[in-house]
């Protein structure tokens, strides 16, 4: 991608997080991946000014403590965070989750493929799109 800001992955499932990291490696994506396991930790990380703001967030929905929708709501009401694009990456195909996410202006809603090859293709497409797009947080 055109800047060096990290990508923030918010994911409670450690296997899924490892799969994302592995796909990044296999695709030669050199951007750093910051991984947090729930919305509460992610919000704390985002609000702490010591941390570099991510270029975008990959967000799971079903998580303990603070789930994805709750984090989204908190981000979109915070002027310092609302401009960061959030892409939902989840196993949920529920219409309710899709509608809630787009009502909170997510910048994409991707269902995790089970097959690893398809998972890599998914990450490739997300990376291509967000490399093409300008980003509000410059590196």
């Amino acid at each position: 991608m055109s800047n060096t800001k990290p990508i923030l992955l918010v994911e409670d499932d450690s296997v899924d997080a490892i799969t994302v990291k592995r796909a990044f490696d296999d695709l030669g994506i050199t951007k750093s991946l910051v991984h947090l396991t729930n919305g509460e930790d992610a919000l704390e990380h985002l609000e702490n000014e010591v941390n570099n703001k991510p270029s975008f967030v990959l967000l799971d929905l079903n998580m303990p403590k603070m789930n994805g929708i709750e984090l989204l709501r908190a981000m979109k009401t915070n002027p310092a965070l609302r401009l960061i694009p959030v892409i939902v990456l989840t196993t949920s195909r529920e219409d309710r989750d899709v509608i809630d996410s787009f009502d909170l202006s997510v910048a994409g809603y991707v269902v995790k493929p089970i097959d690893y090859t398809q998972f890599v293709e998914t990450i490739r497409t997300i990376n291509m799109y967000w490399s093409l797009s300008q980003l509000p947080v410059k590196g």
């Binding site: 979109k76 002027p79 609302r82 401009l83 960061i84 694009p85 787009f102 202006s105 997510v106 910048a107 994409g108 799109y129 967000w130 093409l132 797009s133 300008q134 980003l135 509000p136 410059k138």
Partner: peptide
Amino acid sequence: PVVVLTTSQEERDVVESFNLCVAGYI
């Protein structure tokens, strides 16, 4: 989802668009 497709590379336009929650700025 709204994707901006413009000739403008102005940082101000990018930031303003993402503040209005666009889903991409090309």
